[in-house]
Design a protein around this nucleic acid. Structure first.
Length: 578
DNA sequence: GCCGTTTTCGGCCCGACTGTTTTCAGTCG
């Protein structure tokens, strides 16, 4: 079982225990174990295979009991405790918990009183007016349940970060029109640059809170106002995205920003730390036990109050950032200006929409020193991949273009390159003689995704062992929310990549973000360089580098861990083939 | 169930909004 599957079992155990009315701290432990499993850069399976039970020790949040269950799942593919809980509470109840406004208490009551076992039965009961008869329910909550079911059935649960970005910008612009508004900052997982975002949280300070609320709910994209209070409101947009807003005093803005940026697990740890120091943290500030205000206007001051330096939002995922902050060992955040060039760019020759010259012009405007033109090879027929003759012609065109740039005294170089296909048998789709003439070789898998992990790993490892590859492109092939990653043992691939001086790509295309944040942590640990590239098919895609940079920051990468932070001369030395 | 600058036992983050129960529990983030 993969980490995400193990995590799902823990989440379900937590939900089932909560439905049963079990100890809430125990519930929280399972939920926490699920989050830890999900966010772990190493595969639990690999840790267990390599180190046995000891390999699983020392993971914060995983104790005796959850460790035993992890081992059970790895060995048997299931968890007896989980199955046992499912005999007591039907699995349909887990779906019911997802209905907005229905939590464990209400769900359990509905189940007990009406024998409801599935979301469809819940819908029927509500439609027939049987819910409002129950103690603690009324006509309003019954209608709310019906709406919640409708929403759940139609709504996408999570949104790609790039889907949310335009809405975030739109709300910021919209709220700027409110008289007296001071700060408007989207927080939450959006601010942490998480690859998918569940909802958008916006924090504001304003002299007139009422005016902010009134204007907020009138945004033209709003479909439904879920709640509207003095300082907090929630709406759902036509696109299905939920947006929350908070209005705060200037004095509390930093504390609120810290709180609403999350992650939840990070905040719990920070508050726990505060508590141990005799402090109390809420979204209104840091306070002593006697209620005296300590800090809150600036986020930095909140962290300082608990003896820590400011922690960048991308790191706030409880992956050791608090311990690192304590030791002064936080990674130096990668900056946009650290990136010297883009190493994965397509042109009209294959499936891009602009010419080599146009792409280069656009890259120069971003202040880059270099750009690799990496059109597809012939195996990718649908993208009009280049055969030997066409790539030779392109090389000549690149040489001529570089000559022209030199004559114009422009400090920019186009690298002769390719995105060569790794065929199903692990061979490359250009002959060695061609690949040796190129400055840089990106190699990617574009077909035959449904291999076993063993086959896929061998396929990519075989390609690396040719010694001709500088970068493995989009190493897992996933498309966020659309296509699962193909099965591949990245730890093995990285070990081989390290030997052959091959980098792994962090593809910044917002649908891909591949490597992901956890994989970046693994690459860093294994000492493999990461190339942050955009896979641009248009001049407009080059700006997607931001998504790659922030994903890299989430993966703790620093300037030294990234291939394309190197100046051209240094880069060319690294790219030199053995 | 997890964990330790107060602890191997006894704690475990904190507050807003809603609906319904006339004083608060449940849900959510």
């Amino acid at each position: 079982m993969e980490n995400s599957e193990i995590a799902r079992v823990f989440f379900e155990i937590a939900d089932l225990l909560e439905l049963k009315g079990g100890d809430l701290f125990r519930v929280r432990s399972y939920r926490n174990a699920g989050m830890v499993a999900d966010g772990l850069p190493e595969s639990l399976k690999t840790l267990y295979e390599d180190g046995g039970e000891d390999g699983l020790k020392g993971i914060p949040g995983i104790g005796e009991s959850t460790r035993t269950k992890i081992i059970e799942m790895l060995e048997t593919g299931g968890c007896a405790f989980h199955r046992e809980l499912l005999t007591e509470m039907p699995s349909g109840m887990l779906e019911i918990l997802k209905v907005s406004g229905v939590g464990p208490k209400k769900a359990a009551l509905i189940h007990k009183e009406l024998g409801v076992k599935t979301i469809d039965e819940l819908e029927k009961a509500a439609a027939e007016g049987r819910i409002q008869e129950l103690a603690g329910f009324g006509q309003v909550s019954e209608e709310k349940i019906l709406r919640g079911i409708k929403d759940l059935k139609s709504r996408t649960q999570v949104f790609k970060l790039s889907f949310v970005t335009p809405f975030a910008l739109s709300f910021v612009a919209w709220l700027k029109k409110v008289p007296g508004i001071i700060d408007i900052v989207p927080a939450g997982s959006y601010r942490r640059w998480k690859e998918t975002v569940g909802d958008l949280d916006i924090l504001t300070t304003c002299s007139d809170a009422r005016a902010v609320m009134d204007h907020f709910v009138k945004h033209p994209e709003v479909r439904e106002v879920v709640s509207m209070g003095e300082t907090k409101s929630t709406v759902v947009l036509k696109a299905g995205l939920q947006v929350d807003i908070r209005v705060l005093e200037k004095k509390a803005f930093g504390a609120a920003l810290q709180y609403f940026t999350g992650s939840k697990a990070h905040n719990v740890a920070i508050r726990d730390r505060a508590k141990r120091m005799g402090l109390k943290i809420s979204e209104y500030g840091v306070f002593r036990e006697n209620g005296q205000w300590v800090a809150g206007e600036k986020e930095e001051a909140v962290y300082a109050a608990v003896g820590l330096p400011w922690i960048p939002p991308e790191l706030r995922e409880m992956r050791g950032e608090i311990e690192a902050a304590e030791k002064g060992a936080l990674p130096e955040p990668l900056k946009r200006s650290d990136i010297r060039g883009d190493l994965h760019v397509h042109t009209k020759e294959s499936d891009g929409t602009y010419t080599l010259e146009q792409m280069a012009e656009a890259a120069m405007k971003l202040g880059y020193e270099y750009m690799a033109v990496t059109d597809h090879s012939k195996a990718v027929g649908i993208a009009r991949g280049l055969d030997e003759a066409r790539i030779m012609a392109q090389m000549q065109a690149v040489d001529e273009f570089n000559d022209k740039l030199r004559k114009q005294k422009k400090k920019f170089t186009v690298l002769k390159s390719t995105e060569v296909d790794i065929r199903a048998d692990g061979t490359l789709d250009h002959p060695e003689s061609v690949l040796r003439k190129l400055d840089l070789v990106v190699a990617s898998v574009h077909s035959g995704f449904s291999m076993s992990m063993d086959e896929m790993t061998k396929r990519v490892v075989k390609a690396i062992r040719t010694g001709l590859i500088n970068i493995i492109g989009h190493p897992t092939g996933r498309l966020i929310g659309e296509r699962e990653p193909y099965l591949i043992d990245l730890a093995k691939v990285m070990a081989e990549a390290k030997k052959y001086n091959t980098a792994l790509e962090l593809n910044s295309y917002p649908d891909r973000l591949d490597l992901n944040d956890s994989h970046c942590m693994l690459a860093k640990e294994k000492g493999v360089l990461v190339a942050i590239s955009t896979d641009s098919h248009s001049i407009h895609h080059l700006a997607n580098i931001e998504y790659g940079i922030h994903t890299a920051r989430r993966g703790w990468l620093e300037k030294k861990d990234v291939l394309n932070t190197r100046p051209l001369v240094e880069l060319m030395k690294i790219l030199k083939k053995k």
